[in-house]
Amino acid sequence: MVESGAAQPLLDMQGIGKTFGRGPATLQGLSLSLGRGEFLSLLGPSGCGKTTALRLIAGLIAPTEGRIRWAEPKPRLSFVFQSPTLMPWATVERNVWLPLRLAGRSLAAARGEIAAALRLVGLEAAARAYPRELSDGMKMRVSIARAILTRPDLILMDEPFAALDEITRFRLNEDLLAIRAATGCTVIFVTHSVFESVFLSNRICVMAARPGRVAAEIPVPAPYPRGDAFRGAPDYAALCQRVSGTLRQAMGEAA
């Protein structure tokens, strides 16, 4: 079902290094390849350079070593931050409109797409609300609606649910998989939750710190769609245990 990265990787980065100023290397020898349609998780302890890796991929900062190779034509990106990052002065609808507005589309012309995106995250009723009137989980959904509005080829997500309670997080995880099934987009998902990474992704890159690099790659062979039943399955528990072990090992190496 999922193409392996070998055939035509959407993104290929080998031996990437990033050093801020004169400090020690934040990333060194980071290698990562991503196939079309994959759901890849970057899992690692705080400060290991996950956000930095994502910002490199998004082109917001440049690597000091190595190059990032993209498939042709270059996939269109969107980004979901750890915080909802909405414009407080704009309604939900106008926040979601942003990517199309920047592409020169009027609100009237974009209404159909905006409504569709809001429906996918289950917020069509909140279109005229202001961000401050929403709960944190709803704000995060708006942020996701904005990210899927243009049907990007690749969505980069930086711990989008880290600040939410576990119940909300589980539900949003399931919604995220449904959205991905509906849009067919490729995702790189940063998290430091083992459970989240196993539930969501078909491949997990475990990162080690100082310098940040990919310490191990673990495939998650379970098929989609995955529901709450998957969380109770024995192979889910086994995978979580294996990923935890690998993560501990990667952290031990760094210390």
């Binding site: 998004a58 917001l60 920047l102």
Partner: peptide, 17 residues
């Protein structure tokens, strides 16, 4: 907000936008 600024950059916003 810095993240919003980054978002504008990702979507290729012009200076004026």
């Amino acid at each position: 907000d810095h993240n919003l600024q980054d978002l504008f950059r990702i979507y290729g916003a012009t200076r004026w936008q």
